[in-house]
């Protein structure tokens, strides 16, 4: 299977577990990393939470204007992107498993697949942004709403749309950077059953970013389809 097969009963060296000096055991190091990552993800929830709160309040206040915007959202592209991200989460999870099994070839494969899905998502998003620009739906820079009585309030939805999906896309780009780092490290044979914390942690991050999208899609694209 892999390069670093550990004979049963023999402890891995500090070198193999990448144990840092201030931890007593690899298990402690892994626990700390996991708790740290989850704590970080909670801060992310609150970060996005501010925007979700704004969304909830304005949606309550200006329901009709918000519903009218769904006409201008491309549900097909948004739906495709949802599917793409779900697939990327699957490949990411498989990648973590491959790392745990010291299967380097598979790890590399799944990392590359995840990155491809991530890139597809961003490209599709780019097309959508472009379409919004052409249709004069970019608040602040180029906004002219076809339904005049909703212009002021529809603008808020589009502002939130760009803030929320933009923040999300930024997280995707950061994620792609992290995945490239994992790929390089994987090629250097760093990961094995004794040391796979970075793969698992970045995996958690990637799933989190996917989940944000799972909320964004219905909230931003399907408002008018409610009735």
């Amino acid at each position: 299977m892999a390069e670093t097969v550990i004979p049963v009963g023999q402890e891995p060296t500090a070198e193999e577990t990448h144990l840092r000096h201030h931890f007593a055991t690899p298990a402690q190091q892994m626990d700390a990393a996991t708790l740290g990552m989850w704590t970080f993800l909670i801060t992310e929830v609150l970060f996005f939470g501010g925007m979700f709160a704004a969304y909830a309040i304005y949606r309550g206040m200006y329901m009709d204007a918000f519903a009218s915007t769904s006409e201008f959202m491309n549900v097909v592209l948004g739906g495709t992107n949802t599917a793409v991200l779900i697939c990327s989460s699957l490949t990411m999870a498989l990648g973590v498993r491959a790392a745990q099994l010291s299967n380097r070839k598979q790890l590399q494969l799944f990392l590359v697949l995840t990155m491809i899905f991530g890139t597809i998502f961003l490209v599709i998003k780019g097309f959508e942004y472009h379409a919004k620009w052409v249709e004069h739906l970019v608040p602040g820079f180029n906004f002219h709403y076809p339904i005049p009585q909703f212009e002021r309030h529809a603008q808020i939805l589009f502002f939130l749309y760009f803030c929320m999906t933009g923040m999300h896309a930024l997280h995707m780009i950061v994620g792609l950077g992290l995945l490239s780092y994992l790929l390089i490290q994987a090629t250097r044979k760093v990961f094995s059953a004794t040391y796979y914390a970075p793969v698992e942690m970045i995996g958690l991050y990637w799933h989190f970013v996917d989940i944000v999208w799972i909320f964004l899609f219905p909230l931003l694209y399907l408002i008018g389809h409610r009735k």
Partner: peptide
């Protein structure tokens, strides 16, 4: 962080939030 960011967007782009 997010409220300051929204504030900055409003100031830069003059969109109403």
């Amino acid at each position: 962080a997010i409220v300051l960011l929204l504030l900055a967007f409003e100031r830069i782009a003059h969109v109403g939030i």
